[in-house]
Design a binder for these strands. Structure first.
Lengths: 334, 334
DNA sequence: CTGAAAGCGCTTACAG
DNA sequence: CTGAAAGCGCTTACAG
């Protein structure tokens, strides 16, 4: 494998000069440049990223932590990130945590051993304080996930407002008994969606019935089970809002099992615009997040922190708009 | 950020000794080891992976190229890889090609600039010959994808046999007009599935009707369109085998649109056991590949090439068994 | 058991 | 415009 020294010898110059040509520095004679370029070509030389980065004290690597890559929400986020990273000369290290705390910390520690320049967290299962010791080693940016305060830059949506938008839509269709099946409420996103649900009800003076609020683990089975429970109530709901589409699939399956027709007898809405949502019958009303944009923006934010220093970065909290897709599952039949 | 020199000074030894302790080398006095360990602890020292790898001429990084991470097939493959990589001290660089040839080559070139130790390809859109110049820089392993001959180690399934299994299943249910909607036939996997389709028909003396073989781009829309065309035939099929579940969703949607009942009037089968397959009604008969195992095995194979040299690795072609899931879409009503 | 020295392949002041 | 030298942070023969 040829090194810079081989190129220098062949071209009859010093390795300093080769380095200059390589990095497009000024003050190189045109003749010299040509000789060097020819030597590079002839040897099929590629500079070693490793050596370069050791010298420059940077890795051009970004660790992205995701709980679960099979979830289209996270894979789309990654697609958005990858696009921008490549453009800017960064590479992405895929870190799947499986929502396990130790695994998460293990990856965060890569910052300490300088394996990566920075970290993007799409979720955080450890307490926020556990990040503090690592922040000195490089920037950390949230996307999707966020925390109160703005000690850590984040890219996200307004979950409260988005959930409220769905509930208002169901209210407008005449529903008064609207159930909410949430994901795990130790997750801030779920807490905020719940807040949005309450807010929408309260804003028009509807009572908030604890019986109608359920919590599951973000799975289809969870949605199925919670729906069954809801229909054991004396006064069951006429509409169900699920905190994500995976749950909503379980909701629709359970309703079908109960012999209840969607949307005629019960309306359903989800969240995420998962590809599922147009496969299931009836097609699911849902909220779309601009996942590609969010991923892209997160990488841009991280690179900005790297370039100008975290503390100088403004807009520490970037919010994106969401969009409600009204489909069959919440469409009134004429 | 402390370096090995800081530790050496604090412990009052040479950096050679610190390195020995770090790497668990023998011939270090127990007292000395303790002193060094204490210094490491006190400084919160972590060795720089970069420097270590520059010296050792390895990166412990594996580039994994995938066409599309939103496809659950590829994301599960990645999950399997990640698990083993982490166990063995390797990290995974996520390379999304979007099926673009230039993008693919761009990533393959990382081998040349020694950014990664090896490459795993889940697909290859460039001609196989284009890999040859890069093979000298590090091992390349296929998973899912493969080529004729065994110049490149691969982990895959027997696509011909698996497709034949599906078709035999449909034949056993009494079908004689079985259509096949394939993915792009420049992909070897699709060609092999088609071969399996033909083989199953021919094995019991059924004619192979060109009209019943269609090709699309692996999308739901493609499956929809091809199905519509099939039902413009004078003698339409009574069963449709789609080369993957995404296509099969389009098939079922088209049949529904035509007012045809599945499975009563037309039976359908897919491939991949995509999560879709249990969301769509009726639930889809499909073939499951052991994606996690395949991903894991691909990483093991690559690491073996790295450890003992590509040429010494046996089992250059590893085949995994597939499993047919018979669901409603191909179940005869009593 | 321990250390001085060389070297992995680059880049960057510094000097000319 | 060009080059000699130092150095990024490690590991590894080599010598003692």
């Amino acid at each position: 494998m040829p090194t810079i020294m081989d190129v220098a010898k062949l071209a009859g110059v010093s390795r300093t000069t080769v380095s200059r040509v390589l990095n497009d520095k000024p003050r190189v004679d045109e003749q010299t440049r040509k000789k060097v370029l020819a030597a590079i070509e002839q040897l099929n030389y590629e500079p070693s990223h490793f050596a370069r980065h050791l010298r420059k004290q940077e890795t051009r690597l970004i660790a992205v932590l995701v709980p679960d890559i099979s979830n289209p929400f996270f894979s789309r986020l990654l697609e958005g990130m990858e696009e921008v990273a490549l453009e800017r000369g960064y590479k992405i290290l895929l870190c799947i945590t499986g929502d396990r705390k130790e695994r998460e910390m293990q990856y965060i520690r890569m910052l300490e051993s300088r394996q990566v320049d920075g970290i993007i967290l799409t979720a955080l299962r450890n307490p926020i304080d556990s990040l503090v010791p690592y922040m000195q080693f490089g920037p950390i940016v949230f996307v999707n996930e966020y925390v109160d305060g703005d000690c850590i830059p984040s890219v996200a949506i307004d979950n409260t407002a988005s959930a409220a938008m769905v509930v208002r839509h169901l209210i407008a269709l005449g529903h008064r008994r609207i159930a909410f099946i949430n994901g795990p409420e130790h997750i801030i996103i779920c807490r905020d969606r719940k807040a949005g649900y309450r807010k929408a009800l309260e804003s028009i003076g509807l009572p908030v019935d604890d019986q109608l609020m359920r919590e599951c683990d973000y799975t289809t089975e969870g949605g199925f089970r919670c729906t069954q429970q809801l229909f054991e109530l004396a006064d069951p709901p006429t509409a169900i809002f699920a905190a994500n589409d995976t749950i909503a699939v379980g909701v629709i399956k359970a309703l079908r099992r109960q012999g209840l027709q969607v949307p005629r007898q019960v309306m359903v809405a989800g969240f995420d615009n998962n590809p599922f949502s147009t496969v299931i019958e009836p097609n699911l009303t849902t909220v779309e997040q601009p996942t590609h944009l969010m991923g892209a923006e997160a990488v841009k934010l991280l690179i900005k922190c790297l370039d100008i220093g975290r503390d100088k970065v403004k807009f520490r909290r970037i919010l994106f708009e969401t969009k409600l897709y009204i489909r069959e599952s919440s469409t009134a039949s004429e």
